[in-house]
Amino acid sequence: MDLFSVLMAAVAPGISLLAYFYLKDRYETEPIHLVGKLFLFGVLLVIPAMVIQSAFIEEIGGENQFTFAFFISGGLEEFLKWFVVYHLIYRHSSFDEPYDGIVYAVAVSLGFATLENILYALVNGTSISMLIMRALLPVSGHALFGVMMGYYLGKAKFMRAHERKYLFASMLLPILWHGSFDYIQLVAQSNWIWFMLPFMTLLWIRTIWKINRANEHSPLGRIMRSDEEFEVG
Rank of each mutant, 00 (worst) to 15 (best):
residue 215 N to W: 01
residue 40 L to E: 04
residue 56 F to S: 08
residue 16 S to W: 06
residue 132 I to V: 11
residue 100 D to Y: 02
residue 60 I to G: 09
residue 177 W to K: 10
residue 206 R to C: 12
residue 213 R to L: 10
residue 135 A to L: 05
residue 165 K to F: 14
residue 228 E to V: 11
residue 197 L to Y: 05
residue 111 G to M: 01
residue 201 T to F: 04
residue 165 K to V: 12
residue 29 T to K: 14
residue 202 L to D: 04
residue 123 V to D: 14
residue 22 Y to P: 00
residue 192 W to Q: 11
residue 12 A to H: 07
residue 128 I to W: 12
residue 2 D to S: 11
residue 62 G to D: 03
residue 209 W to M: 09
residue 204 W to D: 03
residue 41 F to P: 01
residue 217 H to E: 13
residue 147 V to D: 00
residue 89 I to F: 15
residue 191 N to A: 05
residue 180 S to Q: 08
residue 134 R to Q: 03
residue 7 L to G: 05
residue 76 L to Q: 03
residue 195 F to C: 06
residue 93 S to P: 13
residue 123 V to R: 14
residue 124 N to F: 15
residue 104 Y to L: 06
residue 124 N to W: 13
residue 78 E to P: 00
residue 122 L to Y: 07
residue 232 V to E: 11
residue 59 E to K: 13
residue 62 G to W: 02
residue 64 N to C: 07
residue 129 S to H: 14
residue 39 F to I: 00
residue 175 I to S: 02
residue 64 N to P: 09
residue 194 W to D: 08
residue 218 S to T: 02
residue 67 T to A: 13
residue 70 F to S: 01
residue 180 S to E: 09
residue 213 R to M: 12
residue 59 E to C: 10
residue 138 P to D: 05
residue 100 D to R: 00
residue 199 F to I: 01
residue 176 L to C: 05
residue 174 P to G: 08
residue 196 M to I: 04
residue 80 L to M: 06
residue 54 S to M: 15
residue 4 F to I: 14
residue 50 M to D: 11
residue 188 A to E: 10
residue 30 E to Y: 07
residue 9 A to G: 11
residue 88 L to N: 06
residue 188 A to Q: 10
residue 51 V to Q: 08
residue 224 M to P: 06
residue 34 L to P: 04
residue 107 A to R: 03
residue 217 H to P: 07
residue 216 E to F: 14
residue 197 L to W: 04
residue 71 F to P: 02
residue 151 Y to L: 04
residue 5 S to C: 09
residue 222 R to H: 15
residue 81 K to N: 01
residue 100 D to E: 08
residue 127 S to C: 11
residue 110 L to K: 02
residue 14 G to N: 05
residue 197 L to C: 06
residue 75 G to L: 04
residue 139 V to Q: 03
residue 19 A to C: 08
residue 113 A to H: 01
residue 33 H to L: 13
residue 121 A to F: 06
residue 6 V to M: 09
residue 40 L to D: 03
residue 184 I to M: 01
residue 143 A to W: 00
residue 81 K to R: 03
residue 202 L to W: 04
residue 147 V to I: 15
residue 43 V to A: 14
residue 129 S to L: 11
residue 114 T to R: 10
residue 169 A to M: 15
residue 87 H to E: 10
residue 182 D to F: 00
residue 59 E to M: 13
residue 75 G to Y: 02
residue 121 A to E: 02
residue 208 I to D: 12
residue 64 N to W: 14
residue 177 W to R: 08
residue 150 G to D: 02
residue 63 E to D: 14
residue 81 K to E: 00
residue 49 A to Q: 09
residue 153 L to K: 03
residue 216 E to S: 15
residue 195 F to R: 05
residue 10 A to Q: 05
residue 159 M to Q: 15
residue 27 Y to R: 07
residue 90 Y to C: 03
residue 92 H to I: 06
residue 60 I to R: 11
residue 42 G to H: 02
residue 38 L to E: 10
residue 199 F to M: 00
residue 201 T to S: 05
residue 37 K to R: 12
residue 122 L to H: 04
